[in-house]
């Protein structure tokens, strides 16, 4: 028995979940992009929700793009909107 939603599996059925290294970042720029977003949101006084919205849009715009590249796109979007 499963209570999970019965979403379409067809498009993704062949993709394997990647290996499971424990580290959160593959490359140093990812850690810096992460920290830049956290700090910029804090310093600009925006709610974190606002960045998450940008991130979701960036992921939706290119679902197969590597995660931290979507993060970077969201960060660029955020910085472009700074006064």
């Amino acid at each position: 028995m499963t209570s999970s939603p019965d979403a379409s599996a067809s498009a993704s059925a062949v993709r394997a979940v990647p290996e499971r290294p424990d580290r959160p970042f593959d490359e140093p720029w990812q850690a810096r992009a992460f920290a830049l977003a956290v700090l910029t949101v804090q310093q600009s006084g925006q709610p974190w929700e606002a960045f998450r919205g940008r991130l979701k849009r960036a992921v939706a715009a290119d679902p197969d793009r590597p995660y931290w590249e979507s993060w970077l796109a969201a960060l660029e979007d955020l910085v472009a909107d700074l006064p």
């Binding site: 999970s4 939603p5 019965d6 979403a7 379409s8 599996a9 498009a11 993704s12 059925a13 993709r15 394997a16 979940v17 990647p18 290996e19 499971r20 290294p21 424990d22 580290r23 959160p24 970042f25 593959d26 992460f34 679902p63 197969d64 995660y67």
Partner: peptide
């Protein structure tokens, strides 16, 4: 911070479907 696989499109889509 979430691990690499948690953020992958494959995990995000497939763990819901199957």
């Amino acid at each position: 911070i979430p691990p690499v696989w948690y953020k992958s499109p494959a995990y995000r889509a497939r763990v819901v479907a199957e």
